[in-house]
Each structure stands twice: as C-alpha cells, then as structure tokens.
Amino acid sequence: MTPRGLLRQLPLQAILAITALIWVFPFIWMVSSSFKTNREFLSAGLDLIPQQLRTENYVRAWEVANFSQYFQNSVIVTITTVTIVVVISALTGYALARVEFPGKRPLIVVYAATLFIPKGYTIIPVYQLIRELGLLNTLPGLILAEAGAAPVLFALLFMAHFSGIPQELDEAAELDGASFGQTFVHVMLPLAKPMIATTIVLQFMWTWNSFFTPLVLTLNNPDLRTLTVGMYAFVGEYNTDWTGLTAAALISIVPVLVLFLALQRFFIAGLTGSVKS
C-alpha cells in the first residue's frame, strides 16, 4: 500500500468507515450499557463510557434471571442438533453421490422441492406430532423438531462434494477389504472436512438463534427455555431492567458471534454454496 494509494482511497474509506460504524453501533452500545447501572443508563444520553466496569448486570442475568439454566439448555439443544444434522446429511450425501438405487431420482426431487417451503407454516403439525410422541415440554422433543426441520440442503451439498472426489479412492479401499461403511468413515469423511465445517457453522447459527420452535414446544415449562425464549420471558418479568437486559442479550449473542468470527470462511462458503443451488 503506497501512501498515494491510501490517500486516493480516503473519501471511499470515510464513507465505509462511517457506514460500518453505524452498522456495529448497536453492539457497542449494548456492551457499554451492560456495564452501567440502570440509573446511569437512563441519564447518560449518548455517553458510551460507563463510570466503572460493573459486572453486576451479568451476575443478575446469570443467577437471578436464570440465564445459567437457559444457556445450558441452548448448549445441549444446539450441540445435539448439529451433531445429528451433520451425521444424517453426510450419510445421505454419500449414498446419493455413489450408488445408483431405485428411488434415488424421486428422493432428490422431493428434497429439492422442500427448499421452497416456508418454515412456520408447518409448525402446527410439528407441535401435534411432538405432543403425540409424548415429547412436548422436553429437550429431546425440541432437539428432534430442530433436527427434523434442518434444511436438506446440507445433504445436497454433501452429495455435490462427494461427487467431486474420484471414485477410484473408494474402489481402492474396497479392494483392501473395507466395507461400504468403513470406506465412508475412514476414507471419505476425512476428505469432507470443509463441508462438515460449513454444516456445523450454519446449523449452529440456526439452532442457537431459533426462537419460534422452542417457544411453542416449551410453552409450559420455564426450566426448558433456551436463551432466545428466556430473553423474551425476561422482558415480561423484569421490564424496567434495561441494563440487565443488555447483559442477558450479550450472553445470548456472544457464543454465535465468536463462532462466526473464528470460522467466517466456512460461513461465507456455505452461503454462496446455497445461493448457487
């Protein structure tokens, strides 16, 4: 970067810097508010620097407002759902990429068609089904509904990925006496690491952020609330505790944010991949 080059970029940089600042400003404001007292919060106007770094808002959200429980529920639901989705999508993708079997075409067509169906529209029967399975107001019920609603897009992306790997590799493994399942686990899965990472980050984001399904499925059991539902309940219960609210909001957002910043490349790859298909 030559000094002249940088100078020429100055107007462009100014526009971008201001717009980007507006874009992240709500988050800066949240962090700042979460360290203030409620009185300070109301009188501060636009002053972003808290008088001192207080952690009491976090303590209050974590202990009093039960966010430790909500956090734990979110972690359990998200990790289990993501694991299930990765496994079933990879299995389907591999079978579709490698084997010709009767019913394969219709399966792909049906899966592709489901991509067009808006979510939310199917929540009523999902609720009924979970209830009939006796899993209403349980974490397994929620996990099942989340994993079941996961986009089959991942399976189709896995299929494309596996199709791009030379078939000679499987054949060599089979000549060495490996079964179909062993070949998949020991030879193909290690080659699908980028696809697995993409599935993990996207599905993590969806499940962690999911609100409607956990809201409907845990309506009668506050102990099973995930962070999103807990946030919603928080406003109803402590509606004047603004700083406690921003602390609770940050507790809910930070994990998915950290994951995004760490694995950004797979995020973008996954999104561009889903656009293309």
């Binding site: 079933i88 299995l91 591999y94 079978a95 079997f101 199917t122 089904l129 099942l144 399942g181």
Partner: peptide
C-alpha cells in the same frame, strides 16, 4: 448400504417436513 445411509434423514424429513405439509 445406500438405503441404510439415506434412511435416518428420510425418516426425519418425512416426519417433520412432509407429514406436516
């Protein structure tokens, strides 16, 4: 093998996407 591989997802999709529709 292929049928065994597609089965888990097929069950979930059938139960939580196709059946609800």
């Amino acid at each position: 093998w292929a049928y065994a591989f597609v089965l888990p997802q097929l069950v979930l999709v059938a139960a939580f996407t196709l059946y609800p529709i």
